[in-house]
Write a protein that binds this DNA or RNA. Structure first.
Length: 593
RNA sequence: CGGGGUGUAGCUCAGCCUGGCAGAGCGCUGCGUUUGGGACGCAGAGGCCCACAGUUCAAAUCUGUGCACCCCGACCA
């Protein structure tokens, strides 16, 4: 651990009046922060709990400290970064025409019951009761409450459209917080909600939010790509995610190098490989001793996987479901869940499989009854598929949908994989990992109706307001910015979100020339409105340089006898590593670029 | 909730098999020497060895049960 403050007054304190006289009103750069006073502990080694680069660097640079799983305390330096990210978000949201409000984090449970989400969110909701035993939740998001607020203010089509947003703490009892600031139980979200008279104007509100998001991420130095997304538990129709591509991301996205199609793996569309052409033949039972899997079956019978019908069993909201898909494809559980409009979807456990009379490894929909059968078009359209005989060790050749079995529901439930053909252009899809930074949804009326957000249109008719919802995770953005901007020595902040603009490293503060130069520099930087961190600690040069690299402030200015002898101060660019001696008066212009 | 891993000083970790005084490096405090890439000397401080229960003359160490944290899967910003 490196000391960042000292009980002893630093040479600067001894020799300079604190807070040099300053005539202009306080701005961002005033007063400069001295490291001898700053609450900051940097670590030489990262705690063993950290694996992600951002997690390690957040802990090593002392930006935040864990209180418990998914809960972090921010230190002054870390908090400055958070505030700068929020400032960018705020500026761009305002620019897009959105209006900022502030809502309670504590919500009466009834609000959540009105939309059915008290149950839909399930365990994720933090619940509590007041002294009178009235139920409350800590808001995991704010569609309901924002709709409540909108309902008071919106009566007429003349009140629309309007977009409201807030930057607020959200609480989610996540099954697994992880990755430092990537997935928290308490986190800050910028959440915006648009209110429109109809779907056509919603498109404009959605586009405005979308454009604001692109500017926000660009300004923050975070490369993201928009991808088509599933709308998940929030509900709604069109939806896109802004994904930061990184190996360590928890989401998988499919990208088409041909036409640019991009989608979350949960949502991705693709062109299924064609089925083998054949004339329907008579069904025939064959012995397949010990064969349980599609690859084994295909090898044993010398057929291709696409000539087989795969059976998978799930439990959807308690009810067993039998799922068929062609053997060369996999089930996309999110698509299946949406098809079934199910709240919970789990693989059926072994006991339930037996209880339902299913023969795992030899199951098929042929002769099956008493269970919902869902099939992907691939299984329905193909002819002469090999399927289970519902008898251990036997399969059926030449089964055909319509003749031998019938699906209750036919829907796209196939999982897109690397190499599958793009639905639009046929190019082989690629997969990448990514982190979801923001998510935009077209909600429609699923919240406005139950909460009662209605307006009177020009004809005097009462209509539900059409809503959109737009979220950005602030701490996650900070983590991703570090993932995208660091090297082996530490963080490399984009200038737009850096905790300070300039890091002044003062060496040999016992020398009057250095002291004078620091004092003059401090003033000129402050006057220029630049925010400054000055390392005035009684530490060795090595420690100061290491800490400067770790903290990652864009410019480092070294004030030392050596530099002064060469006619100025040493200016170093953290990102490029370029170092040069510049005259004291030039620092401000150089830093401003 | 399923699978894996880890809990010993502020941090990184030894010690645990094979029970017997609580350890190292870094950091921290004081004094001194240092000052361009995590310096050096001397002297110090710092521990409910995650918790509880058991086995034992004796438990950081063996057994059991919890809990916490991390990682992999199901959720989301």
């Amino acid at each position: 651990m490196t000391p960042t403050r000292s009980k002893r007054p630093s040479a600067l304190d001894r020799n300079l009046q604190p807070a040099a006289p300053f005539n202009s009103p306080p701005e961002r750069g005033y007063p400069p922060m001295r490291m001898s006073k700053l609450l900051l502990k940097t670590l030489r080694e990262a705690p063993s709990e950290a694996e992600l680069a951002s997690h390690k660097l957040i802990l090593r640079a002392g930006l935040a400290a864990p209180l418990a799983a998914g809960l972090y305390c921010f230190t002054p330096v870390g908090w400055r970064v958070i505030r700068r990210i929020e400032a960018i978000i705020r500026e761009e949201m305002d620019r897009s025409g959105a209006q900022e409000v502030h809502l309670p984090a504590l919500h009466p449970i009834e609000t959540w019951e009105q939309t059915g989400r008290a149950e839909a969110m399930g365990q994720t909701l933090f619940r509590l009761a007041d002294r009178k035993e009235r139920g409350f939740v800590l808001g995991p998001t704010h569609e309901e409450v924002m709709a409540f607020l909108a309902a008071r203010a919106i009566q007429s089509y003349r009140d629309l459209p309007v977009t409201l947003y807030q930057i607020q703490t959200k609480f989610r009892d996540e099954p697994r917080p992880r990755g430092g600031l990537v997935r928290l139980r308490e986190f800050t979200m910028k959440d915006a909600y648009s209110f429109d008279t109809g779907w056509d104007t919603l498109d404009a509100s959605y586009d405005a939010a979308f454009a604001a998001y692109q500017r926000i991420f660009e300004r923050a130095g975070l490369p993201v790509i928009p991808v088509a997304a599933d709308s998940g538990a929030i509900g709604g129709k069109d939806s896109q995610e802004f994904i930061f591509l990184t190996e360590d991301g928890e989401d998988e996205v499919l990208l088409c190098p041909g036409c640019g199609y991009a989608a979350n793996g949960e949502k991705a569309d693709f062109r299924r490989p064609p089925a083998l052409e054949a004339v329907p033949a008579a069904m025939e039972k064959v012995a397949t001793p010990g064969i349980k899997t599609i690859p084994d079956l295909a090898a044993f019978l010398k057929v291709e996987p696409r000539q087989t019908n795969k059976a998978v069993f799930y439990r959807a909201d308690g009810k067993p479901v039998f799922v068929c898909i062609r053997g060369d494809l996999d089930v996309n559980e999110i698509k299946l869940k949406n098809t079934l409009k199910a709240r919970d979807l789990d693989p059926l456990d072994e006991a339930a499989v037996r209880a339902a009379g299913l023969v795992a490894g030899s199951a098929s929909a042929v002769g099956l009854s008493g269970m919902l059968i869902v099939a992907d078009p691939s299984a329905v359209e193909a002819t002469n598929l090999v399927a289970g005989a519902n008898e251990d060790g036997f399969h059926l050749l030449n089964t055909n949908h319509g003749r031998d079995w019938k699906a209750d529901v036919v829907a796209d439930i196939a999982l897109a994989r690397r190499g599958d053909a793009c639905a639009t252009c046929g190019t082989a899809l690629e997969t990448r990992h990514g982190m979801e930074m923001g998510h935009v949804f077209k909600l429609g009326t699923i919240y406005s109706e139950p909460i009662g957000v209605y307006y009177l249109d020009e004809a005097g008719e009462r209509r539900p307001v059409v809503m959109g919802s737009y979220g950005i995770g602030v701490e996650r953005m900070l983590a991703a910015i570090i993932e995208a901007n660091h090297d082996s020595n530490g963080i490399i902040w984009p200038a737009s979100v850096a905790p300070y603009d300039v890091h002044v490293v003062a060496l040999n503060l016992d020398q009057a020339a250095v002291l004078d130069a620091v004092a003059a520099l401090e003033l000129s930087l402050a006057e220029a409105g630049l925010s400054v961190l000055i390392d005035d600690r009684d530490e060795s040069a090595g420690i100061k340089f290491k800490d400067a690299d770790l903290l990652g402030i864009p410019y480092r200015v070294t004030v030392s006898p050596r530099a002064l002898d060469r006619g100025g101060l040493e200016l170093r660019n953290r990102r490029t590593g370029e170092t040069e001696i510049v005259a004291a008066g030039e620092v401000v212009t150089r830093v401003r670029g």
